[in-house]
């Protein structure tokens, strides 16, 4: 994904308020969505676009300043995490989800686990991981919630792809253990 930052739009100094920046942000988010679209999974792209759309609305409403593209990606990814988790919570997903330990932890069954129901528990585990190591949480947000590729996420966090891959593996292992132990 070729992300442009700063975007090729210069802010008019007379109207340099947040409103003028929003379309730029929106375009950037659209490019995030394009990351999903590129994977060409029919039927799912629409969800990704809707997610980006709502992230835009939230960012537009928050009026939080960001310093550069990587900072922005971090905020957007966090916003997407909040949106997805909020929606899962709103549906009472937590109640239905009995933890992963109930099913056998083989690959095939894990992939069949209902992510929707898992999200609130994942969010809590992620908050615990964040206390331990904030960077780990950033990686999960960029990769899992914003759908960035290894290279994109590595670029956003200013580390090599190889390092990101290993730390992403660590985050997944840590979270997987947290969720497996839940009952």
């Amino acid at each position: 994904m070729q992300l442009q930052w700063p975007p090729t739009v210069t802010v008019n100094p007379q109207h340099g308020d947040a409103d003028d920046l929003m379309p730029v942000v929106y375009n950037e988010l659209r490019r995030l969505a394009a990351g999903y679209l590129r994977r060409e999974r029919p039927g799912q792209t629409l969800q990704a676009t809707a997610l980006v759309h709502e992230a835009y609305l939230r960012l537009a409403g928050a009026g939080r300043p960001w310093t550069d593209r990587n900072h922005f990606l971090g905020i957007a990814a966090r916003s997407m995490r909040q949106i997805l988790v909020d929606r899962a919570r709103a549906r009472g997903a937590q109640k239905r989800w009995g933890g992963m330990a109930r099913v056998s932890l083989t690959d095939s069954l894990v992939s069949g686990v209902n992510d929707d129901a898992m999200l609130p528990a994942l969010d809590e585990a992620l908050s615990r991981l964040e206390e331990l190591d904030p960077e780990q949480a950033r990686i999960v947000e960029l990769r899992y919630f914003a759908g960035l590729s290894v290279e994109e996420a590595a670029g956003a966090l200013g580390m090599s792809s190889a390092t990101l891959k290993r730390r992403w593996a660590l985050a997944r292992a840590w979270l997987f253990r947290e969720l497996s132990d839940q009952r």
């Binding site: 999903y36 799912q44 809707a50 997805l84 929606r87 549906r91 914003a146 759908g147």
Partner: peptide, 10 residues
């Protein structure tokens, strides 16, 4: 990614 796996959350 989450949005690929959550069929109708959005």
């Amino acid at each position: 990614p989450a949005a690929d796996r959550l069929p109708d959350l959005m």
